[in-house]
């Protein structure tokens, strides 16, 4: 090798950098374009089950119109965003102290605790959801234990013979918090870990008690971590399909479940596509607005 490492030699570098882009174009952009195109088609009883209008304007926007007019969809969107939002806030409340604690322990304990955070990934996600179902069911020891505790503390007229946890929105949020917690903890940890601890000392030196140091220094400086963790939880949670299907309530469907119903049993591919496009817009537009605002706030001195 004459100069530089093999990576810096032009051909290799280009190939390696191109790899992820090719992957994204083939397996994200292209399918997404297909979905967008399909969303302006008309559902027909044929194979494939959609067709485009044969005359101007060729696009069929009734699918999108239906999104807003049918309460089923609006409600599903609302439930999805609500559940995802509640799960994100709970993940933050549980995950922030975990992440902060991780930065304050010695190195060997830190390694162990980090491993425990990612340990659940080593077993199948489905298996873990089924384990939750086992815990939540009316006949489980866990449910009975909770029922007994409740019955001990309340008068006889309030007694239950079991607690309805399964097939509720509560169960959906609970399992989502459990499943997505590492996605909150890890980015927060990465952010908090690289904060300069002398800033805490400086604040304390200038008269701030520990909780004021947290409020004035640690919390504002960890906002990027909170945003990163929040997005990693909120975005997948709002499109979640498996958890609501397994532990949720069919009469309060999340949007992912609706999409799968439209694709599957209804065979309405265009409708499913338009819901997917709408969900993406709902998630991406505020995000882009935020990053635009952030970039403007970063540039130029404040006066």
């Amino acid at each position: 090798m004459s100069e530089g490492s093999w990576f810096n030699r032009r051909g290799w570098r280009d190939i390696i950098i191109a790899g992820p882009y090719v992957w994204l174009v083939l397996f994200f952009l292209l399918p997404f374009i297909i979905v967008v195109v399909m969303s302006i088609a008309k559902s027909v009883t044929a194979s494939p089950p959609f067709a485009f209008l044969s005359e101007f304007p060729f696009a069929y926007v009734d699918n999108y119109a239906r999104l807003w007019s049918k309460s089923l969809y609006v409600r599903a969107f609302f439930i999805s965003l609500w559940n995802a939002g509640v799960a994100t806030v709970l993940c933050l409340l549980v995950g922030y102290p975990m992440a902060l604690g991780l930065t304050r322990v010695n190195k060997s304990l830190q390694r162990l605790l980090l491993m425990l955070v990612v340990l659940p990934f080593w077993t199948s996600f489905l298996l873990r959801v089924y384990a939750w179902m086992g815990l939540m069911g009316r006949n489980s020891w866990f449910n009975r234990l909770l029922t007994e505790i409740h019955n001990l503390l309340t008068p006889a007229s309030w007694h239950w013979d079991g607690i309805q946890i399964m097939n509720t929105n509560f169960a959906v949020v609970l399992v989502m918090v459990y499943s997505y917690l590492p996605f909150m903890v890890l980015p927060l940890y990465a952010n908090l870990e690289k904060l300069d601890r002398t800033l805490d000392e400086a604040a304390m030196d200038l008269g701030s008690r520990p909780w004021q140091v947290f409020k004035d220094v640690t919390l504002p400086l960890s906002i990027p971590g909170i945003i990163a963790g929040g997005l990693l939880v909120f975005i997948p949670a709002s499109g979640e399909l498996v958890i609501p299907s397994l532990v949720g309530n069919v009469s309060d469907p999340m949007i992912g479940y609706v999409i799968s119903q439209e694709f599957g049993s209804n065979h309405d591919w265009p409708m499913a596509s338009s819901i997917a496009v709408a969900l993406l817009l709902i998630l991406v537009v505020p995000l882009m607005a935020y990053s635009h605002f952030e970039a403007r706030a970063q540039a130029g001195p404040e006066k």
């Binding site: 800033l199 400086a202 304390m204 030196d205 200038l206 220094v217 400086l221």
Partner: peptide, 17 residues
């Protein structure tokens, strides 16, 4: 530290970014 009549200028300055 927050109750001492002492202030410190840190080597890294430790300015709040």
């Amino acid at each position: 530290p927050y109750e001492r009549p002492v202030n410190m200028m840190f080597q890294s300055y430790a300015l709040f970014p």
